[in-house]
Structures are given as structure tokens and as C-alpha cells.
Nucleic acid binder design. Structure first.
Lengths: 336, 336
DNA sequence: CTGAAAGCGCTTACAG
DNA sequence: CTGAAAGCGCTTACAG
């Protein structure tokens, strides 16, 4: 047989109807085990596989999940954020565990933006992994009418989109509790709380909660827009030192800022972790290699994938979990 | 209109036949511009998108490329090799540039192995990104009859499978030329040349070529199987030092071995890059953070994706390019 | 428990 | 340049 075998070929060989082949292969309860065995054998013998194009057309659903990773224009595969890759892997793994295939797309430029996977019969739902920095992408995806579309976002700056996020408040609390346990007396928060990156503000809130719970006054070292997060962190720390400092520990809104802070402190001859402790958020690969190595808090990537996929398909449930648990990794920058 | 609009709905609204809608939307040359404009407008107005399930069923092809990333059993998203992720991104980007969607799957355990994407009508071809270490996966994929299947492999230990690889010989030559240019006089090769990781032997051959071209005698410091590549590298360097050393530079078959070598040299008080220069292959993230930072050679990830996709669809062409160009990154470990 | 028949929504020869 | 008709290969009511 030269052409691709069809279910009719299997039916003939097994001596049953096409309907029976379909039911047997789909695992229908109604089929006799003897019949099923005959069908499976015939299918195996002629190398038959169900053609999913036809099956999906008839069935209506696709068994596929689309995943869009938003990048910055001009970024090559090597430039893409390692955390985005991890999240992608995590979503694919979670989808696979639930029996879904994953259609993956990296989107950077305006002309590439595309979210109509359901309309095209490509997928039953969409997970968007974003970085706040590509504003045009967020505008595009926000513009997709939500009605009749299953979609969930990671990293959305918009609260009105269906999102899954790190438990940022817990992160803020964890940081403070750790710093106090290490003997620091006055941890400050380094970051911008009015940033479109709303999650920074959430971390700040958690920080404030824990400070007040410990009877301490929150203290904000504000950053301002810079070319990179590192520079923002470094500049803010320098300004803070110029004003006389005052805190003995820093919880930075993200690792990149924390790394910048580390750099600035080193420049100014402030000992870390001796005089000042530093903690960040993200667990970037660079955190492991900084000098001193950087204490940090990060979401569990495996949990992130599961929550994203579950949020997509349990949207009807009351209170689907949307906060990814975070955990603390203690390293040199707070080890005194 | 509550139900999903079809091409018949568009036809009615534009006052043309279903055939014309199909042709207009597919960009057929034969359609009048005026007609096409009417059709496009009607489609836009009712929010119509071509149902790809039906289109593909009728057309026969899928416009999709399957990508399988082989992992190790038990690996979570966070454990997967960053280079595999980069390669995945690179393949997706290259596929997208050529108008293909990408169906991505991470496969680790024996029960999960699956390569019948074409038979299922899921894809027109398959790219497998492997790591030599998952032998069971290679056995599975090697077992898929090659006939009638479009498939190309990265990292295959088997030469009889359709592969794309780094230009390993060029890497060996580059390493030697760089080391000699830095004033080293006797570079040796650190690695196992009979490893199932055939690419190590290729790097050794390139090394030998360049050594002989410079009138020097190749010198192999052999590694033996260890728990990790780092340990293999460290153990081999220690054994070599015990025997009196003799070389003044090391080109290691991979960065992990080079990092182990760096560690062993530090233990023994041998100065790098002063007394001995060290270069590796891969450009692992850790190479940037080693002490001293590690000079290394690596394939261009963007090129890798392009070559993989092209190898898939130009299999008929004579001499498709299958060697990914490599480049040298000079860092501290050879900077003297 | 199994079969005959309809139909999912397209694309593409075949006519004109 | 456009239309009427067939058919891609399944799944699923509907009968029996």
C-alpha cells in the first residue's frame, strides 16, 4: 500500500466498520475487548495512525494549546530571557501531562503579533508569556476581545487580563523575615512602586507588611528609569549613600537591580554582607555567580506552568489558583 | 451570528462563491483585485478566520514543523540544558521565517517517545534536539524507519541519521590558532576521542590538523568516564600533572571539562592563564563567571536553527549545509 | 455492541 | 476570472 492508510483500510483488514475502528482506537467503553484487539492489530500491521486533521475537524476541538513568548524586537534565540525559556518548558510539560500538544510561537515585532489560534482551529486556548518591556505586544493582546477566548497571561502589566503571577507579597515578607533573622535591623526596599511592572509594587507591599509586623518603619529607596535595571539599581544606591544611607540591608525589586546595587556598594567600599545585606528576586543565573553570590527569591517554574494551564481550563471554577509560590535561596550577600 | 463564521458566510456577504473566497484569501493570482478587496472586507467584518483543520485536511500538508527536545528522565523545566532551549528558540524562529508553525514536545521517558507527527497529520517534518546522554531516546528515534519521513537531528551520536552539527574541526583549528597566537607553545587536547559523543573526536581532528600545520606534535590528555564532565576534566588534569605535565595550554573538548580542569589547576597552584592557558567549547553560562573567565568556542545558535530547518526541507538538494559555523570568545583563561 | 450515513469546513480539479 | 461539485478522513448521532 503506497498511499497513507486510512481508517477504512483498517476496517477492511479487521473485518469491521469504520465506526468501530474509530471507537476502538478512541478507547470507547462500548467496544468488546476482542473487537478492539482485532482493530488494534490491524492498525499496527498496516502502520495506521489517526489523521488528526480530520479527527479535529469533525470533533471541533484541537487538543492543542498555543503558547506565545513575547520577545523584544531584534532579539535572537540567544538573547531571550532564560526565565522565559524555563516558563515555556514548564507550560509545555504541564500541557503534555494534561494530554495537550503545544504550538509555540515567539513574537517580537508588531506585524508578527497573532493571537487568533482558536479562530484558526489551531488550539483550544492560549498562554502568553510576556515581558513588561514590550508594550506594543501588550497593547495588541489586550486589544483581542476577551469574549469567547481562552487566554491567560504571565507577566501582564494589566490586572484586567486573566493572569498568573508570582506570589509577590509573600516574596516581600520572606525577604524581610530572612534579613531580620540574619540580624539586620533596618532593611529598605529598592525599586519603583509606580512602575508599569505592577509586580514590583506587590513585592513592596509584602515588604511593608512584614516590616510593620516586626514593629519597623518601611523605607523606600526609589529607582528611576535607566537604560538597564542594573543601572537603575546602581544609581539609586549611589543617591541613597550620598544622602547618608541609613538602612543596613536592601531588598531589591529584582535581581538585576540587586546586581547593580552590589556593584555600587563595591565601588563605594561598603562591605556586603558585613555592613549591608542584599537580596533580590528572580534567581537569575547571574545571581549564582555574583560576588558575593546573591541571595534571592524566585517563583517555582514547574508550578508556574501548571497554574497557567489550569487557569486556562478551569476558568469557570471559583478561585482558581493564580499565585505561584516563591522560595528563598540564601547565598553570600546576606550570610553574616 | 453566534456560531463561528465559515467561508460560506463570507461568500454570502461578499456576494461571491465559496471558491472565490478561498482563492481570494489564499492570495491566488487569478482573482481580481476588486473581488479580493470585497472578500477581505466581508471576512474582516464578520471576524472570519480560515479553519486550518479543514484547510489542511483538504490540502494534505500541515504547514507545521514538529520539534522534539529530548531531556533526561525526571528533569523539570528548570533543569533542561540552556543550550537546548536556545536551539529550540532558534528552530522556532527559523521555522516561523519560512512560514511554518512549530509544535513543541519535551520527551524524557521511554513511554513518552513519539515521532509519528507526519502520520498523525500534525506536521510536515520533525526536528529532534537531543543530548547524547539519553541513549533510550536515540534508540527509539533511530528505530523509526527513515523512509517517507522528514526528520533531522541535532546532537545525534549516529552518523547514519540526518544530522546538523557544529563545525567541530573548525573549532579545533580555531582553538589551536588562538592559543599559538597568545604565545603558548604546546597546546594539548583534553577529552575522550572514542566517546559516543562523536563530536569530541571531530574537535580533536581539527586540533591535530592545526597542530601539524604549525609543525607541532598533537598531544592527547585522555579523560575517562566520571560522574560529571567536570570531574572527568579535573581527574584527567591531575593525572597529567602527576606525570609531569608538559603542555602549556589545554583545549578541552567541552566547557564542563575545561571548568573541571580550571579547578584542578587552581588546586595544584598552577597559574591560569600565566603558566597554562585553557579553552573550552560550548560557551556555557558558567564560562562567563568562572575564575578566570573561560575562553571558549561555540556554534552560532541562530545559524543552527536555520540549518536544521533547511536540512529538513532541502533534503533533495546536493550538499545541504550541515555544519554550523563556530566562533571564538576570548576571555581571561587565555589572556596573557 | 456494531453499522450505514451524514457532515465537519475547507480546497481544487473541472467547466464555462 | 468565477462557480458548482466533489471529497479530504475522520466522528457521531441515529438505528438496530
Amino acid at each position: 500500500m503506497k498511499r497513507r492508510p486510512t481508517s477504512i483500510d483498517v476496517a477492511e483488514r479487521a473485518g469491521v466498520s469504520q465506526s468501530t475502528v474509530s471507537r476502538a482506537l478512541a478507547g470507547s467503553e462500548v467496544i468488546t475487548e476482542a473487537t478492539r484487539a482485532r482493530v488494534l492489530r490491524a492498525a499496527e500491521e498496516i502502520g495506521y495512525f489517526v489523521d488528526e486533521r480530520a479527527a479535529r475537524l469533525r470533533r471541533g476541538s484541537t487538543g492543542t494549546l498555543a503558547v506565545v513568548v513575547i520577545c523584544r524586537p531584534g532579539e535572537s534565540a540567544a538573547d531571550i530571557n532564560p526565565f522565559s525559556y524555563m516558563l515555556l518548558g514548564s507550560v509545555c510539560l504541564a500541557a503534555s501531562e494534561r494530554g495537550f500538544e503545544t504550538l509555540v510561537s515567539f513574537q517580537a515585532r508588531e506585524e508578527q503579533f497573532f493571537g487568533h489560534y482558536e479562530e484558526r482551529g489551531w488550539a483550544d486556548g492560549l498562554v502568553v508569556i510576556g515581558t513588561t518591556t514590550n508594550r506594543a505586544a501588550w497593547d495588541y493582546f489586550r486589544g483581542l476581545e476577551k469574549a469567547e477566548r481562552r487566554v491567560v497571561y504571565w507577566g501582564s502589566p494589566f490586572d484586567d487580563l486573566e493572569w498568573v503571577r508570582s506570589d509577590n507579597r509573600a516574596a516581600g515578607r520572606l525577604a524581610v523575615e530572612h534579613l531580620l533573622a540574619q540580624g539586620y535591623r533596618a532593611p529598605c526596599f529598592l525599586g519603583a512602586i509606580d512602575s508599569p511592572q505592577h509586580q514590583f509594587a506587590e513585592r513592596y507591599e509584602g515588604y511593608c507588611d512584614a516590616m510593620r509586623a516586626a514593629g519597623l518603619e518601611p523605607c523606600l529607596v526609589p529607582t528611576r528609569d535607566g537604560a538597564t535595571r542594573e543601572e537603575e539599581g546602581a544609581a539609586a544606591v549611589e543617591a541613597w549613600l550620598d544622602q547618608g544611607g541609613g538602612a543596613d540591608a536592601i531588598f531589591a525589586a529584582c535581581d538585576a537591580m540587586a546586581l547593580g546595587a552590589l556593584e555600587a556598594l563595591k565601588q563605594r567600599g561598603v562591605a556586603v554582607p558585613g555592613e549591608v545585606g542584599v537580596a533580590g528576586f528572580d534567581d537569575l543565573p547571574a545571581a549564582r555567580f555574583a560576588q558575593p553570590t546573591l541571595t534571592t527569591i524566585a517563583p517555582d517554574p514547574a508550578a508556574a506552568g501548571s497554574l497557567l494551564v489550569d487557569a486556562l481550563f478551569n476558568a469557570g471554577d471559583d478561585a482558581p489558583l493564580r499565585r505561584v509560590p516563591v522560595s528563598l535561596t540564601v547565598r553570600g550577600s546576606t550570610a553574616r
